[in-house]
Amino acid sequence: MPENFARFRRSHEFWLLSVILILVVGLSVMTEGFLTLQNLFDLLTSYAFLGILASGLLVVLISGGIDISFTATASIAQYITMLLANKYGLNWFIVFAMASVVGIALGAINAVLIDRLNISSIIVSIATLNIFYGLLVFITGGKYIYSLPPWFSHGIYWFEYVDADEISYGINLQILALAVMFTLTWLILNRTNIGRQIYALGGNREAAQRLGFNVFRLNILVYCYMGLTAGVASLIQAQLAQSVAPTVLVGKELDVLAAVVLGGASLAGGVGTVFGTILGLTLLAVMQNGLILLGVSSYYSQFFVGLVILLSVSATALSARRKRKGVMTE
């Protein structure tokens, strides 16, 4: 497939992958801890929350919209579900179903406001972020939930394997959910007619309307899917943190956005892939992890993360410019 490879080489993903590979090779050579099973396992576990949200946001961006209220949605889903789980002693299936339903319901509010009142998605989601978050903290008084049901705290561990140092690995809740959500997102986007319609909608909204797409239904689907991912992400975050705090998730929306946009999704809509998003997230994760392993003071890790974002986006822009050079419009 030389032609496909040539196409890939010109893509944003190729750039990202190259940067990541350089980082990975560099870190593997320079540190002992990077390329260990334990480190990779920890990385996956700790970035699952952002990753799941990123898969939801990707769908929203592809459709040509934006959502930044999902951290508030996640906080609410988490809080309600864990409150009820404590009270009624539910099971895995029910808690995930419940968190998903809460997320979907809040996503539907966004979709209805955006589509029926014809307000831009950025305005709606800034507003609903404040409304959801404000009401949550107001009603709960900002109180943490420290004790979670024991079966929930204990989590799951599939295919457990214990190495020589008695450290155990396996498929935990976070990794499982991350894999499921990425797969689901990929399936929806690439293997269903609805997914292709979401791309089409983001590519040319007016044409989609003219062709008889049901735009309202697509919007509902997109924002509800974002809500669903927020619900799922919120639970695996609660499981990892072993507590529920209504105020810790809000503020992370821009981290998620950074991962998705670094992964090549465009805010103008129609562009973005699950693979790209995974790469964007991986870049952020590997970089942050690498800085710690390299012994860079954790106080400076943000600085380097920002620096790498700036350098990589500038490099991408420069290469795109060079390609366009000679074209009249530049």
């Binding site: 821009l254 956005l257 950074a258 946009v261 670094l262 400076y300 890790s301 943000q302 600085f303 380097f304 993360v305 920002g306 620096l307 974002i309 700036l310 986006v313």
Partner: peptide, 12 residues
């Protein structure tokens, strides 16, 4: 993207 990058860097 740009200001997200500078935001993180400057805070860093």
């Amino acid at each position: 993207l740009t200001t997200l990058g500078t935001m993180t860097m400057v805070k860093g």
